[in-house]
Design a protein around this nucleic acid. Sequence first.
DNA 1: TAATCGTGGCA
DNA 2: TTGCCAAGATT
Length: 366
Amino acid sequence: MKQHERLMEFNITGFQHDLVTWFEREQRDLPWRKDKDPYKVWVSEIMLQQTKVDTVIPYFNSFIEKFPNIQSLAEAKEDKVLKAWEGLGYYSRARNLQSAVREVHQAYDGVVPNTPKEISSLKGVGPYTTGAILSIAYGVPEPAVDGNVMRVLSRILLIEEDIAKPKTRKIFEDVIRELISQENPSYFNQGLMELGALVCTPTSPSCLLCPVREHCRAFHKGVQTDLPVKSKKKSTKQVALVAAVLQNEDGKFLIHRRPSQGLLANLWEFPNFVKLDELGTSKQQLQSLIKSEYEINANINEYLCDIKHIFSHLVWDVNVYVGEWTGEIPEDADLVSVSEEEMLQYAFPVSHQNIWKEYKSKNKAT
DNA sequence: TAATCGTGGCA
DNA sequence: TTGCCAAGATT
Protein backbone atom coordinates (compact mmCIF):
# COMPACT_ATOMS: atom_id res chain seq x y z
CA MET A 1 0.00 0.00 0.00
CA LYS A 2 1.26 3.48 -0.87
CA GLN A 3 1.69 6.06 1.90
CA HIS A 4 -0.57 8.27 -0.15
CA GLU A 5 -3.40 5.79 0.40
CA ARG A 6 -2.69 5.33 4.12
CA LEU A 7 -2.91 9.08 4.63
CA MET A 8 -6.08 9.67 2.56
CA GLU A 9 -8.39 12.04 4.42
CA PHE A 10 -5.89 12.29 7.28
CA ASN A 11 -5.50 15.75 8.78
CA ILE A 12 -1.72 15.91 8.85
CA THR A 13 -1.28 19.48 10.07
CA GLY A 14 -3.99 19.06 12.69
CA PHE A 15 -2.36 15.89 13.96
CA GLN A 16 1.07 17.54 14.12
CA HIS A 17 -0.33 20.48 16.06
CA ASP A 18 -2.27 18.37 18.56
CA LEU A 19 0.69 16.07 19.17
CA VAL A 20 3.36 18.76 19.49
CA THR A 21 1.32 21.05 21.75
CA TRP A 22 0.47 18.08 23.96
CA PHE A 23 4.17 17.23 24.27
CA GLU A 24 5.03 20.85 25.08
CA ARG A 25 2.44 20.75 27.83
CA GLU A 26 2.76 17.26 29.27
CA GLN A 27 6.32 16.03 28.72
CA ARG A 28 8.07 14.49 31.71
CA ASP A 29 10.97 16.28 33.33
CA LEU A 30 13.82 13.87 32.49
CA PRO A 31 17.54 14.39 33.06
CA TRP A 32 18.41 14.06 29.36
CA ARG A 33 15.89 16.76 28.47
CA LYS A 34 17.72 19.56 30.29
CA ASP A 35 19.60 20.52 27.15
CA LYS A 36 20.17 19.29 23.59
CA ASP A 37 23.81 18.27 23.98
CA PRO A 38 24.18 15.65 21.21
CA TYR A 39 26.46 13.55 23.43
CA LYS A 40 23.91 13.36 26.22
CA VAL A 41 21.08 12.71 23.78
CA TRP A 42 23.18 9.91 22.33
CA VAL A 43 23.98 8.32 25.71
CA SER A 44 20.33 8.49 26.76
CA GLU A 45 19.11 6.91 23.53
CA ILE A 46 21.53 4.01 23.84
CA MET A 47 20.56 3.41 27.48
CA LEU A 48 16.86 3.60 26.65
CA GLN A 49 17.07 0.82 24.06
CA GLN A 50 14.76 -1.93 25.35
CA THR A 51 14.97 -0.37 28.81
CA LYS A 52 12.42 1.53 30.89
CA VAL A 53 12.83 5.21 31.70
CA ASP A 54 12.71 4.60 35.46
CA THR A 55 15.56 2.11 35.17
CA VAL A 56 17.70 4.41 33.03
CA ILE A 57 17.46 7.62 35.10
CA PRO A 58 19.96 6.72 37.86
CA TYR A 59 22.35 5.09 35.36
CA PHE A 60 22.23 8.15 33.10
CA ASN A 61 22.94 10.54 35.94
CA SER A 62 25.92 8.64 37.31
CA PHE A 63 27.25 7.89 33.82
CA ILE A 64 27.21 11.58 32.83
CA GLU A 65 28.82 12.46 36.14
CA LYS A 66 31.66 10.02 35.41
CA PHE A 67 31.86 10.74 31.67
CA PRO A 68 30.46 14.25 31.12
CA ASN A 69 31.56 14.63 27.51
CA ILE A 70 32.96 12.93 24.43
CA GLN A 71 36.57 13.31 25.50
CA SER A 72 36.13 11.86 28.98
CA LEU A 73 34.36 8.76 27.65
CA ALA A 74 36.85 8.38 24.80
CA GLU A 75 39.77 8.40 27.22
CA ALA A 76 38.20 6.17 29.88
CA LYS A 77 39.24 2.58 30.53
CA GLU A 78 36.72 0.11 29.15
CA ASP A 79 36.53 -1.56 32.57
CA LYS A 80 35.26 1.69 34.07
CA VAL A 81 32.62 2.02 31.38
CA LEU A 82 31.40 -1.53 31.89
CA LYS A 83 31.30 -0.96 35.64
CA ALA A 84 29.14 2.12 35.08
CA TRP A 85 26.85 -0.05 32.93
CA GLU A 86 26.73 -2.91 35.47
CA GLY A 87 23.17 -4.16 35.92
CA LEU A 88 21.75 -2.23 32.98
CA GLY A 89 21.99 -5.17 30.57
CA TYR A 90 22.80 -5.53 26.88
CA TYR A 91 26.43 -4.78 27.63
CA SER A 92 27.54 -4.58 24.01
CA ARG A 93 25.74 -1.23 24.06
CA ALA A 94 28.39 0.09 26.43
CA ARG A 95 31.33 -1.20 24.43
CA ASN A 96 29.86 -0.04 21.12
CA LEU A 97 29.08 3.37 22.60
CA GLN A 98 32.63 3.90 23.77
CA SER A 99 34.03 2.62 20.49
CA ALA A 100 31.81 5.03 18.56
CA VAL A 101 32.59 7.92 20.89
CA ARG A 102 36.28 7.30 20.31
CA GLU A 103 35.66 7.49 16.59
CA VAL A 104 33.82 10.78 16.97
CA HIS A 105 36.63 12.06 19.17
CA GLN A 106 39.28 11.25 16.60
CA ALA A 107 37.62 11.40 13.18
CA TYR A 108 35.13 14.21 13.86
CA ASP A 109 37.19 16.29 16.30
CA GLY A 110 34.78 15.42 19.10
CA VAL A 111 31.69 16.75 17.34
CA VAL A 112 28.81 14.29 16.86
CA PRO A 113 28.08 14.28 13.12
CA ASN A 114 24.71 15.52 11.87
CA THR A 115 24.06 13.51 8.72
CA PRO A 116 22.17 10.19 8.56
CA LYS A 117 25.03 8.52 6.72
CA GLU A 118 27.72 9.50 9.21
CA ILE A 119 25.66 8.91 12.36
CA SER A 120 24.34 5.53 11.31
CA SER A 121 27.85 4.35 10.51
CA LEU A 122 28.78 4.60 14.20
CA LYS A 123 28.85 1.36 16.19
CA GLY A 124 25.63 0.65 18.04
CA VAL A 125 23.72 3.40 16.23
CA GLY A 126 20.97 1.84 14.14
CA PRO A 127 17.99 3.35 12.30
CA TYR A 128 16.06 4.38 15.42
CA THR A 129 18.97 6.00 17.24
CA THR A 130 20.07 7.78 14.06
CA GLY A 131 16.68 9.45 13.75
CA ALA A 132 16.48 10.18 17.47
CA ILE A 133 19.84 11.97 17.60
CA LEU A 134 19.24 13.86 14.37
CA SER A 135 15.77 15.09 15.32
CA ILE A 136 16.29 15.75 19.04
CA ALA A 137 19.81 17.17 19.03
CA TYR A 138 19.91 18.79 15.58
CA GLY A 139 16.27 19.36 14.62
CA VAL A 140 16.56 17.30 11.44
CA PRO A 141 13.21 15.82 10.28
CA GLU A 142 14.21 12.15 10.26
CA PRO A 143 11.90 9.37 11.50
CA ALA A 144 12.79 7.65 14.78
CA VAL A 145 10.75 4.46 14.84
CA ASP A 146 10.74 2.51 18.09
CA GLY A 147 8.18 0.20 19.65
CA ASN A 148 6.10 3.11 20.93
CA VAL A 149 5.91 4.73 17.52
CA MET A 150 4.84 1.51 15.83
CA ARG A 151 2.15 0.90 18.44
CA VAL A 152 0.80 4.47 18.32
CA LEU A 153 0.81 4.78 14.55
CA SER A 154 -0.54 1.31 13.95
CA ARG A 155 -3.59 2.40 15.93
CA ILE A 156 -3.94 5.87 14.47
CA LEU A 157 -3.61 4.71 10.85
CA LEU A 158 -4.90 1.15 11.22
CA ILE A 159 -1.65 -0.43 10.07
CA GLU A 160 -1.98 -4.18 10.48
CA GLU A 161 1.46 -5.44 9.46
CA ASP A 162 3.29 -7.56 12.05
CA ILE A 163 5.56 -5.17 13.99
CA ALA A 164 7.71 -8.08 15.13
CA LYS A 165 9.01 -8.45 11.60
CA PRO A 166 12.08 -6.35 10.74
CA LYS A 167 10.81 -5.14 7.37
CA THR A 168 7.70 -3.62 8.96
CA ARG A 169 9.74 -0.76 10.45
CA LYS A 170 10.22 0.69 6.96
CA ILE A 171 6.47 1.10 6.52
CA PHE A 172 6.38 3.35 9.56
CA GLU A 173 9.47 5.29 8.47
CA ASP A 174 7.85 6.00 5.12
CA VAL A 175 4.63 7.17 6.76
CA ILE A 176 6.49 9.42 9.18
CA ARG A 177 8.39 11.09 6.36
CA GLU A 178 4.97 12.33 5.23
CA LEU A 179 3.69 13.05 8.71
CA ILE A 180 6.61 14.61 10.56
CA SER A 181 6.49 18.28 11.52
CA GLN A 182 9.13 20.20 9.60
CA GLU A 183 8.94 23.00 12.17
CA ASN A 184 9.54 20.80 15.22
CA PRO A 185 10.66 17.28 14.32
CA SER A 186 12.16 16.86 17.80
CA TYR A 187 8.87 17.33 19.62
CA PHE A 188 7.00 15.41 16.95
CA ASN A 189 9.18 12.31 17.39
CA GLN A 190 9.40 12.63 21.15
CA GLY A 191 5.67 13.30 21.30
CA LEU A 192 4.89 10.02 19.54
CA MET A 193 7.11 8.13 21.98
CA GLU A 194 5.86 9.99 25.04
CA LEU A 195 2.29 9.32 23.95
CA GLY A 196 3.08 5.63 23.67
CA ALA A 197 4.69 5.60 27.10
CA LEU A 198 2.02 7.60 28.96
CA VAL A 199 -1.30 7.28 27.09
CA CYS A 200 -1.31 4.88 24.15
CA THR A 201 -0.02 1.99 26.26
CA PRO A 202 0.07 -1.66 25.12
CA THR A 203 -2.77 -3.27 27.08
CA SER A 204 -5.14 -0.56 28.25
CA PRO A 205 -4.66 2.71 26.37
CA SER A 206 -6.20 5.82 27.96
CA CYS A 207 -8.05 6.91 24.86
CA LEU A 208 -10.29 9.34 26.74
CA LEU A 209 -7.18 11.30 27.75
CA CYS A 210 -5.55 11.12 24.32
CA PRO A 211 -4.74 14.43 22.64
CA VAL A 212 -4.98 12.89 19.17
CA ARG A 213 -7.93 10.57 19.64
CA GLU A 214 -10.00 12.42 17.03
CA HIS A 215 -7.31 11.47 14.51
CA CYS A 216 -7.24 7.82 15.63
CA ARG A 217 -8.87 5.33 13.27
CA ALA A 218 -8.56 2.46 15.74
CA PHE A 219 -10.39 4.48 18.39
CA HIS A 220 -13.21 5.35 15.99
CA LYS A 221 -13.64 1.66 15.17
CA GLY A 222 -13.12 0.57 18.78
CA VAL A 223 -10.27 -1.76 17.86
CA GLN A 224 -7.40 -0.02 19.67
CA THR A 225 -6.65 -3.05 21.82
CA ASP A 226 -6.39 -5.28 18.73
CA LEU A 227 -3.41 -3.28 17.52
CA PRO A 228 -0.55 -3.49 16.91
CA VAL A 229 -0.35 -6.97 15.41
CA LYS A 230 2.69 -8.64 16.92
CA SER A 231 3.73 -12.26 16.51
CA LYS A 232 4.97 -14.16 19.57
CA LYS A 233 8.54 -15.09 20.21
CA LYS A 234 9.84 -18.49 21.10
CA SER A 235 10.19 -19.60 24.69
CA THR A 236 13.50 -19.65 26.53
CA LYS A 237 16.02 -22.46 26.65
CA GLN A 238 17.19 -23.93 29.94
CA VAL A 239 20.90 -24.09 30.78
CA ALA A 240 22.17 -25.91 33.87
CA LEU A 241 25.44 -24.64 35.38
CA VAL A 242 27.69 -25.33 38.33
CA ALA A 243 29.68 -22.49 39.90
CA ALA A 244 32.21 -22.12 42.71
CA VAL A 245 33.05 -19.31 45.12
CA LEU A 246 36.69 -20.05 45.85
CA GLN A 247 38.89 -18.35 48.44
CA ASN A 248 42.58 -18.98 49.16
CA GLU A 249 44.49 -18.84 52.45
CA ASP A 250 45.14 -15.12 51.91
CA GLY A 251 41.42 -14.50 51.69
CA LYS A 252 41.50 -13.78 47.95
CA PHE A 253 38.63 -14.83 45.72
CA LEU A 254 39.03 -16.27 42.25
CA ILE A 255 37.06 -14.54 39.47
CA HIS A 256 37.01 -15.12 35.73
CA ARG A 257 36.57 -12.72 32.83
CA ARG A 258 34.06 -13.82 30.19
CA PRO A 259 35.02 -13.82 26.49
CA SER A 260 34.93 -10.56 24.52
CA GLN A 261 32.03 -11.75 22.39
CA GLY A 262 28.64 -13.24 23.12
CA LEU A 263 26.58 -13.31 26.28
CA LEU A 264 27.72 -10.88 29.00
CA ALA A 265 30.91 -10.18 27.04
CA ASN A 266 33.89 -8.98 29.10
CA LEU A 267 32.02 -9.15 32.39
CA TRP A 268 33.41 -10.98 35.41
CA GLU A 269 32.00 -14.04 37.11
CA PHE A 270 32.70 -16.80 39.57
CA PRO A 271 34.20 -19.88 37.91
CA ASN A 272 31.40 -21.93 36.38
CA PHE A 273 30.72 -24.69 33.89
CA VAL A 274 27.85 -26.19 31.96
CA LYS A 275 26.62 -29.29 33.79
CA LEU A 276 28.03 -32.43 32.29
CA ASP A 277 24.77 -34.40 32.22
CA GLU A 278 21.34 -34.58 33.80
CA LEU A 279 22.77 -36.48 36.73
CA GLY A 280 24.54 -33.29 37.72
CA THR A 281 28.13 -32.54 38.56
CA SER A 282 29.77 -33.82 41.72
CA LYS A 283 32.22 -31.87 43.87
CA GLN A 284 35.04 -34.04 42.50
CA GLN A 285 33.99 -33.32 38.91
CA LEU A 286 33.86 -29.60 39.63
CA GLN A 287 37.38 -29.70 41.06
CA SER A 288 38.51 -31.59 38.01
CA LEU A 289 36.91 -29.03 35.67
CA ILE A 290 38.59 -26.15 37.50
CA LYS A 291 41.92 -27.96 37.21
CA SER A 292 41.63 -28.73 33.51
CA GLU A 293 40.18 -25.37 32.48
CA TYR A 294 42.21 -23.02 34.70
CA GLU A 295 45.13 -25.11 35.97
CA ILE A 296 44.05 -24.21 39.47
CA ASN A 297 43.92 -26.64 42.38
CA ALA A 298 40.62 -26.36 44.17
CA ASN A 299 38.91 -28.14 47.02
CA ILE A 300 35.12 -27.94 47.06
CA ASN A 301 33.82 -27.96 50.61
CA GLU A 302 30.06 -27.51 50.52
CA TYR A 303 26.98 -26.70 48.53
CA LEU A 304 25.91 -23.05 48.86
CA CYS A 305 22.68 -22.44 46.95
CA ASP A 306 20.78 -22.65 43.70
CA ILE A 307 20.52 -19.43 41.65
CA LYS A 308 17.95 -19.10 38.91
CA HIS A 309 18.39 -16.28 36.42
CA ILE A 310 16.08 -15.45 33.54
CA PHE A 311 17.47 -13.82 30.40
CA SER A 312 15.40 -12.76 27.41
CA HIS A 313 16.20 -15.93 25.48
CA LEU A 314 17.46 -18.44 28.06
CA VAL A 315 17.33 -19.47 31.71
CA TRP A 316 20.32 -20.25 33.89
CA ASP A 317 19.98 -22.67 36.76
CA VAL A 318 23.22 -22.44 38.71
CA ASN A 319 24.24 -24.84 41.50
CA VAL A 320 26.73 -22.90 43.58
CA TYR A 321 29.46 -24.47 45.72
CA VAL A 322 32.00 -23.02 48.14
CA GLY A 323 35.62 -24.08 48.42
CA GLU A 324 39.30 -23.18 48.57
CA TRP A 325 41.97 -22.74 45.95
CA THR A 326 45.77 -22.84 46.11
CA GLY A 327 48.74 -21.98 43.94
CA GLU A 328 49.40 -19.31 41.34
CA ILE A 329 47.22 -18.06 38.49
CA PRO A 330 48.48 -18.92 34.98
CA GLU A 331 49.47 -15.92 32.84
CA ASP A 332 46.83 -15.99 30.10
CA ALA A 333 43.91 -17.45 32.01
CA ASP A 334 41.49 -14.49 32.19
CA LEU A 335 41.53 -15.06 35.93
CA VAL A 336 42.33 -12.74 38.79
CA SER A 337 42.43 -13.15 42.53
CA VAL A 338 40.84 -10.30 44.43
CA SER A 339 40.03 -9.27 47.95
CA GLU A 340 36.47 -8.41 48.85
CA GLU A 341 37.35 -4.74 48.47
CA GLU A 342 38.97 -5.14 45.06
CA MET A 343 35.99 -7.07 43.76
CA LEU A 344 33.95 -3.86 43.79
CA GLN A 345 35.92 -2.57 40.81
CA TYR A 346 34.84 -5.41 38.56
CA ALA A 347 31.58 -5.51 36.61
CA PHE A 348 29.44 -8.57 37.34
CA PRO A 349 26.17 -9.64 35.75
CA VAL A 350 23.21 -9.65 38.11
CA SER A 351 23.23 -13.45 38.31
CA HIS A 352 26.71 -13.44 39.83
CA GLN A 353 25.91 -10.46 42.04
CA ASN A 354 23.20 -12.68 43.45
CA ILE A 355 25.68 -15.51 44.01
CA TRP A 356 27.86 -13.11 45.98
CA LYS A 357 24.91 -11.82 48.02
CA GLU A 358 23.99 -15.39 48.92
CA TYR A 359 27.57 -16.15 49.88
CA LYS A 360 27.78 -13.05 52.06
CA SER A 361 24.51 -13.67 53.85
CA LYS A 362 25.36 -17.29 54.61
CA ASN A 363 28.94 -16.40 55.53
CA LYS A 364 27.76 -13.80 58.00
CA ALA A 365 25.33 -16.19 59.62
CA THR A 366 27.96 -18.80 60.41
C1' DT B 1 15.42 -13.48 8.29
C1' DA B 2 15.65 -15.14 12.76
C1' DA B 3 18.43 -15.48 16.63
C1' DT B 4 21.12 -13.24 19.94
C1' DC B 5 21.80 -10.01 23.55
C1' DG B 6 19.90 -8.31 30.10
C1' DT B 7 17.09 -6.82 33.36
C1' DG B 8 13.13 -5.57 36.27
C1' DG B 9 8.25 -4.98 36.56
C1' DC B 10 3.72 -6.42 36.17
C1' DA B 11 -1.04 -8.61 34.65
C1' DT C 1 4.04 -18.88 37.91
C1' DT C 2 4.49 -17.59 33.29
C1' DG C 3 4.66 -14.69 29.65
C1' DC C 4 5.06 -10.26 28.09
C1' DC C 5 6.78 -5.87 27.97
C1' DA C 6 10.40 -1.57 27.55
C1' DA C 7 13.12 5.01 23.56
C1' DG C 8 16.93 -1.73 19.21
C1' DA C 9 21.35 -3.22 17.11
C1' DT C 10 24.05 -6.77 15.33
C1' DT C 11 25.05 -10.88 12.87
